[in-house]
Simulated scan of single mutants.
Amino acid sequence: MGLLAAFTHTLEITLPVFLMVFLGLGLKRLGWIDAHFITTASMLVFKVTMPALLFLSIIQADLGRALQPDLIGYFIGYTAISFFLAWAWAIWRHPRVERGIFTQGAFRANNGIVGLALAAGQYGDYGLSVGGVLAGAVIVIYNVFSVFILSLYSDEVDTDFRSLIKNLARNPLILSVVFAIPVALSGIELSGWVMTSGGYLAGMSLPLGLICIGGTLSVTAFKRSSTIALDASLWKLVWVPLFGVLGALAAGIQGPALGIIFLYLGCPGAAASFVMAKAFKSNDKLAANIIVITTFASMFTLSFGLFVLKWLDLV
């Protein structure tokens, strides 16, 4: 693929996603949406529309292509490795009190909304189905590791693994993937009205979720960013996706699978990081700064990385 063609195609994938984020930021500054709307809409996306999107994308997909054990195993394994690498760096470079927030911010990505939107834009139904399975699988890793690292460096909150297991078992995104796979394998065809109604809900997920992300961003928080936040953001957007792509190439992963790996690993920090930081009475301002920096900067890092991979004909 030529340089100009690769660059143009890259922008066609990334710009629509981030324009929706900036739309949310603009609507919040105009006062057309507020914190109450964002909270309610985010809950709607998490509990209803996103599960509908994942469920429909899986049951309509070719599971022979979507369920790729090697790809899933590599993605989960490398995510775990990136957690321990970031943790080791935090021990070496940063104060003890900030190590939990740094580690979570450096390895946890917003795959459920931003990653899935990018995968769908790049690879259509294939991106939705493969991305949905990967997102459902990695949610468990994100939550278990985040609870562990935040509780380890928290002096006020103890780890309650029983509650963690219950929350994972009731997670709507995980449940949608768990229920979708047997339906897809059984060949059951749902009624037309069910598919149409589900399609209406699913169609709301990505634009509404991206607008909510934009509405939570704060330019002020970006200006107040600390050295630790910048370091965590560098890990999240540069080192984690770079080493992940190199490892995937060494493992023989190329084409669309490699593209999805890059898009998922290079996603900005997850909004859930802020929620968990508050729950563990950690430095939630640092968590917010990491989310803001990675969201803004990922527009450039994702576009550049995808452009290079296309130029080299690897995806």
Score class of each variant (00 low, 15 high):
Q68K: 11
A184G: 13
A80R: 01
A137T: 11
P51W: 06
G127H: 08
F75P: 00
W87H: 11
G131N: 04
L128M: 12
A90P: 03
I149C: 05
V133C: 08
A232R: 03
G105A: 02
A61D: 04
F296L: 12
P95E: 05
I59V: 15
L286G: 03
H9C: 08
P182L: 00
S191R: 02
L23Q: 07
S273I: 03
L27G: 03
L27P: 00
T295E: 10
A66K: 05
V48C: 15
I113A: 06
R65L: 13
L25Y: 14
W311K: 13
P256H: 09
G24D: 03
W92G: 08
T39W: 10
A229V: 06
S176W: 06
I291L: 11
L246N: 04
K310P: 00
S82T: 07
S82I: 00
M43A: 15
A232T: 03
G198D: 01
S42N: 14
L242Q: 05
A248V: 00
I13E: 11
F243V: 13
L263C: 01
L27T: 01
G247P: 00
A120S: 11
Y142R: 07
G115R: 02
F18V: 08
A272V: 11
K223L: 15
I149N: 06
K166N: 11
V133H: 10
T301A: 04
G73E: 04
L210Q: 01
A279F: 03
L208Q: 00
M204D: 07
A251T: 02
F102K: 03
Y264A: 06
K166D: 07
T103A: 09
I260R: 06
A106P: 04
G31N: 08
A120D: 01
L217Q: 09
W89T: 15
G266S: 13
I141W: 01
L15Q: 09
K28E: 14
M195S: 05
A250T: 09
G255A: 05
A271E: 12
T40N: 14
D155P: 00
V275C: 10
L185G: 09
F179L: 15
S82G: 08
F37N: 08
C212W: 03
P69T: 03
R170K: 13
L71I: 04
L152Y: 10
L201K: 01
K28I: 00
L242W: 02
A184H: 06
P207T: 06
S282M: 05
R96E: 15
I139L: 14
G247F: 05
G31I: 05
A221N: 15
G203K: 12
G244H: 02
T40W: 10
L175N: 08
K281D: 08
P16K: 13
V144C: 13
V140S: 12
K285D: 10
P16G: 13
G2C: 07
F107E: 05
I113Y: 09
L3K: 09
V238W: 12
G214T: 02
G132M: 07
I253V: 08
I261E: 02
L242G: 06
V138T: 13
A221G: 15
G115W: 01
L302F: 00
G269D: 09
A248Y: 00
L30G: 07
T301P: 12
L54S: 11
G209S: 04
L19W: 01
F179I: 14
C212T: 12
S273Q: 12
N110L: 07
R29Q: 15
S226N: 05
G187H: 03
T103L: 06
S186I: 05
S205G: 06
F37P: 02
V238S: 12
S191V: 02
V183D: 06
Q122A: 14
I76V: 15
